[in-house]
Design a protein around this nucleic acid. Structure first.
Lengths: 193, 193
DNA sequence: GCTAGGGTTGGTCATTCGTCCAAGACGATC
DNA sequence: GATCGTCTTGGACGAATGACCAACCCTAGC
């Protein structure tokens, strides 16, 4: 049918399985994703799962990190594109309002945090990603003259994930409404004791 | 052996199953708790699970709300016991440092948020509990003259859960270090734009 | 003393699970 | 056009799952 080579089809199956996993982790939960459901969503035979991946856990791990990395990289890029990190945080909050807290993308992140507490390998990979973004935010806050950049970075990152958690329970919550408070927190002139 | 009446033993079995569920949800994840593992932890025969509870989901729901309610009530009581809500928030942050983010108690909460996005009944019950605490915090902040009490309450609650999420990834994180920032956020004199 | 009813037991039911594997299919290389 | 390596298929394996049930135990109340 299509002029695909043998190896190309293999790569595509890999990709389909990974994106299917990214969707299903959010929809069914980390432990709710089975090899057969995964294969069905990817429109692939169940046997292929263990041909392309060492185990189901390994597949879920890879799907998670491959979903998180570009997202966090985008945030870091946003941070580097504006002179004042407080502006980056504000546009980040606006971005967050496009998620409901019950969509697969949001839930994938939360599920990943939980799975990381039970999977040392995943914990290492995620820890590196998250720590790197937090370090970038700390750096930016420090450069803008913030008196306690590391603490502010921790708070901002905690607010983002915690807010999504709560928005899943109450969809009426709005992130952009919190922007003034966070600006206050991240602005060098506002966070003095 | 013991002078237990028939109904007393039934009540005890119920209680044992509920506390076992509270432990296991955090240890294995919401979907990782099975009737047999649950019964084993509670030192009870597997058949009793479906005698005392309508379904496994119903058991997990009840275990979750019964664990959350006293915890949130304690927070509300702490809030009511001091004149300045900023003081309550600070001692709350000190309390949080007693959790590692990987202990069953912390993880039970996070798992519950996730499960609530897939179980409308649980969502309703948890939503009520969380909304009530947030309302109490909003009220207290408002009474202390905070310019935007609701937003500050949302941020504080998000920070708490989000911080636990991140602490699971990086145990070195310290909550009490964030106290000055949150005091700034919750103090009526510090949060003016 | 006897009976009614809540509590308990041990087991069964059909499904689903993760993992594995022999056999076949396919495209690239010589 | 034969051969090689990669990819794919369909099925199998033992183990675990949620739910259910008839039979049994025990105590409270008559």
């Amino acid at each position: 049918m299509t002029g695909q080579t043998n190896a190309e089809r293999g790569r595509e199956v890999r990709a389909r399985l990974l994106t299917a996993a990214q969707e299903l982790i959010g929809e069914l939960g980390w432990n709710g994703v089975s090899t057969r459901i995964l294969a069905e969503r990817a429109e692939v035979r169940p046997g292929l799962v263990h041909y392309h991946f060492e185990s189901l856990q390994a597949l879920l791990r890879q799907a998670t990190t491959e979903a998180m990395r570009p997202m966090l990289d985008d945030m870091a890029a946003l941070l580097a594109s504006v002179p004042n990190p407080a502006d980056a945080v504000e546009s980040l909050m606006a971005e967050i309002d496009r998620y409901t807290g019950t969509d697969p993308a949001s839930l994938l992140f939360i599920e990943a945090y939980l799975a990381a507490t039970r999977d040392p390998i995943l914990r290492g990979q995620m820890g590196e990603l998250v720590t790197r973004l937090r370090a970038a935010l700390t750096e930016a806050l420090s450069a803008s003259g913030h008196p306690s950049p590391e603490e502010a970075a921790i708070v901002v990152m905690a607010v983002i994930d915690g807010f999504l958690l709560h928005k899943g329970l109450d969809p009426r919550l709005s992130a952009i409404r919190l922007a003034p408070m966070l600006r206050h927190l991240t602005d060098p002139n506002g966070a003095r004791s």
